[in-house]
Design a protein around this nucleic acid. Sequence first.
DNA 1: GAAGAGAGCGCC
DNA 2: AAAGGGCGCTCTCTTC
Length: 647
Amino acid sequence: MLEKPRPVVLARPLLLPKDPKYFSESIQYVNNSSGIERLVEFAQQRPLSHIGFDTDLMVQGHSQLLSISMVELQGDGLHIYNFVIDLRGKEYLGNLQPLFDLSVCFVSHNLKRVLFFLWEYGLSAPAIVWDTSINEKVLHLGKNNIGYLRSSKEDLCSQIRAKADKKATDQFQLSLLGTCQRYGVPYRDYQCIASLSKLNQFQLDIAIEDARAAARLYLPQVNIAAQHGLLHHLTTVEMPWAITNAKIQWKGVKIDCAKRDDTFQILQAYQSMLEDQLSQLGINDHRNNDQLITYFNNLGLLHLFKKNDGYSFDHDQLKQLQSHHPTIKALRNLRRISSLLDDKILMPELVKNGRIQPNHIQLGTDTGRQTSEYPNILGMDALLRPLIIPEVGYGIGEVDWSQNEIGIAAAIYGDETLIKMFNTGDVYSAMARHFFVKELPEDLTDQELKDKYPNYRKIMKECTLGILYGMTPYGLAAKLNIKEWVAKSLQARFFEMFPQLQLQLQRLPKLSAIRGYATTISGLRRNRGIIGPPTNWELNWLSNHPIQGSAAVIFKVAGNRLAKLYERYDAHLIIPLHDSFVFEAPLNHLKVVAELTERVMCEAVQEYFPMLKPKAEINISNPDCWNKGDLDPLGKWLAKILESKLI
DNA sequence: GAAGAGAGCGCC
DNA sequence: AAAGGGCGCTCTCTTC
């Protein structure tokens, strides 16, 4: 008789449930691989809500600690399981990875710092995150803008209060301590951990404090964020961008150090040369306004520089007046050389292992854009861009959105004509064809218009930027060097092309002023800092924020995708330049990465604004350095200075 | 002498 | 009455 086949049972390790009571009673100190295993297995079997995490440095021991606070909701409230992991034993860290692979939200008050720490130890970042400090930034975005200091000038009390508020905000509002106080979360602000060879209970308490506070902040913050209509933006855009942003900063940019040192010396030589020339003319200090006033007064040209009560020698002024006297051009050149020499990119101290890691500040602006510092890589003079080079075997590429904010303005304010013009190609050319129909021949292509009638295109461009930034006829007149009444009628006729845009630009900022904030397509709000009738400045940003802020949002969405999609090509985002991404990719993948970037950027726009046909320009013609193919813009510029000898 | 405000340069 | 949105950075001038 045949025996019935028995089902095959695979051998499995016997996993017993771990008693949560044991882990919730004290802080577990983990410093060996079996401790790590216990921790991971415990995390994998608990129905967790979220996990707080943070790092600590033991000052004298030079040892790093990773604190973990797992949170679980039960009938009687929050249960928190605390672990402090000593990272001295690198051999067991690999076993920790499954913890961060859990599909649970990881919470920290400064995610970037903790991610750097994980990456330093070879661990991968969790996929789902929440940065409690970013939440606070978003919640208060705009309220403490420096612009409010000026608006309360007549009232000393409110000015003092505003200043105090500003300082308090900068130092305290975003801190973990300040945040915990606002949410009623218990927190003690220990500065550092005194070192002992072995951690005692008190030190464990200190070590866990930040992770536990972040864990306790999460649910109240999510609640408040939802109440303010910010939750969608935070979870879909801002928190993923916290990881992308950290990746960009971690990667940094490679510097051509030899070229940097050459550049520094050449610029210094040019600086002394121009200074000598100007001092022979009587200007010893080009930054001293009195000297400039005296000098131009002697030439009989001072009246040209008149502005309001005094005299201005600013950039635009000098540019427009440079044909009046060669000194003006020399002044401009010297100023630019001085500002080039000031750039922190030239400081050797910032370079570590050949690369610089600029500080990339998420939500550094009240519109939602990024800022950067040390060095300010986003604001660096284009003449210095070739100092940034790729690693050997890699190339640098850049993909730019074309006139993206204009498309977004058209879509947000719902102007069919502007949308149509944006979708045809070069939006300024399309405008010029329409606006100057009598002056121009029929059926000019974009290129012909750019080449043969640059002035018509320029007028359209200034009018358009005037819309984005809320320019008045006074400002437009100064920009185009025309009379104010001409500018006024020009602007009126320009708006006739876009009636819907004109209407909504009148309405929406005022409605936003009443509710107290302007918003992006994703719900990111820029708040007013005062109530009552809006000032002109407020009306300007109330109309600009939906455009600039939405562009920044879509940019982040695209960046978040790219950062993930780049991994299979071993490519990296290195500079997020407001409307273009600069990346470093292996040379054999450069083209495909550039095309991927272009596609993702354009699709991200269409996802939010299906009516737009956005375009992006690929620049990979010279991957040996950053700057869209121009290897030596600085050399060319300096050569021109030499040609135009002053004396 | 330190700190703040403003001007002026660069970037989008 | 001011007069273009958002920044970082350095310098000068003023103020305490």
